[in-house]
Amino acid sequence: MRITCPYCGPRDEAEFAFRGDATVARPPAEAGADAFAAYLYDRANPKGWHVEWFQHALGCRQWLRVERHTVTHEIRSVVAAVGSTE
């Protein structure tokens, strides 16, 4: 699998570290235990398009939001965390 890093260009999967679901955001500090538990543990786990965190660990060290199809592994978009509004 290849991922196109917005800074470094197309690179082999082996250069990246995978973290997990990027559709969940850290709740505000006072949101409570249920919100933080959901942030850590509740996952939609879709069969299909998924947005997930990859870090270009062996390259520019930037965290990237990657849109990947969980069945075909097709990659639709790669956006750096820094500078993307969400």
């Binding site: 570290a17 973290r19 990027a22 955001a25 850290r26 965190w53 870090q55 660990a57 060290r61 930037q62 965290w63 750096a80 965390a81 820094v82 500078g83």
Partner: peptide, 13 residues
């Protein structure tokens, strides 16, 4: 290091 990079870039940019 990765932990710091993630939280700075993705949580508290």
């Amino acid at each position: 290091m990765s932990h710091m990079e993630f939280h700075h870039q993705a949580v508290w940019p």
